[in-house]
């Protein structure tokens, strides 16, 4: 999905549907199989989500809860979340925040919200790049594993402190005093309509369907 507005709507509908009930979760997974599989999720992320879901389900079972149902519902929520993350494009948050603000009659708040989201995402990506280089640099110094991680932590902390100082400086010289004007232009949402309508249908089906009709929840 290219239009961030419809993507946000679809992800919200699917997440609610998936968490609502096992049938909702299965419908959401079906949606993902049809519309979402083309976005590649990194294997490490998939593994992490899978292991977390299974562990959480085991914990729910052990404490007397409904483990299998939880497993399916949370698994589906994670799949949708991973899809949303992978489908994210540069600048989406800025556009989305500004659009929401303009529509809701509070353009200043919307712009700032989008800006904060954009800068936060950028900082995470930059910190990941820094970490890669810092880790390689520390590895080369050939110290032991513990002191190496302390060294990496120190270097990363200082790199991020410097980054936040640069951020403040750049905002100041660009003339930022809070708020701003941005009327984002989105590519045509028509191509994304089927996926969005399907996601809404999943939510409606999840609410209408009997809660626990499936064999997994017996």
């Amino acid at each position: 999905m290219k239009d961030p507005r419809l993507r946000l709507l679809a992800v919200a509908a699917l997440s609610v549907a998936a968490f609502h009930s096992v049938p909702g979760a299965l419908f959401a997974l079906l949606w993902w199989l049809v519309f979402g599989r083309r976005t590649a999720v990194p294997p490490a992320v998939a593994l992490f989500l899978g292991v977390t879901t299974v562990l959480a389900a085991l914990a729910a079972s052990a404490s007397g809860g409904d483990g299998p149902s939880y497993l399916v519902r949370c698994g589906a929520v994670f799949v949708i979340a991973a899809h949303a993350h992978a489908a994210q494009r540069d600048g989406d948050l800025l556009d989305l925040g500004a659009w929401l603000g303009n529509r809701a009659g509070c353009p200043r708040a919307g712009f700032d919200l989008g800006l904060v989201g954009e800068l936060a995402l950028g900082s995470i990506a930059a910190a990941a790049d820094d970490l890669e280089r810092i880790r390689f640099a520390a590895e080369q110094k050939g110290s032991g594993p513990v002191s190496r991680w302390v060294a990496v932590g120190t270097a990363l902390l200082f790199a991020e402190l410097r980054r936040s100082r640069d951020l403040a400086r750049n905002l100041a010289v660009r003339g930022y005093h809070g708020g701003g004007r941005h009327d984002p232009v989105f590519s045509s949402p028509i191509a994304d309509l089927p996926a969005a309508v399907a996601a809404i249908s999943v939510l409606i089906a999840a609410i209408l369907a009997p809660h626990e009709f499936f064999i997994l929840s017996l």
Binding site: D130, R133, I134, F136, A137, A138, Q140, K141, S143, A151, V152, T154, A155, F158, A159, R162
Partner: peptide, 22 residues
């Protein structure tokens, strides 16, 4: 051994002397 263009990624010592020792 690799040295990147930004020296900051290499700095792990709390003092200049500790950096050399590292």
């Amino acid at each position: 051994l690799w040295v990147g263009h930004d020296p900051v990624v290499h700095l792990t010592g709390g003092t200049v002397a500790a950096e050399v020792a590292s």
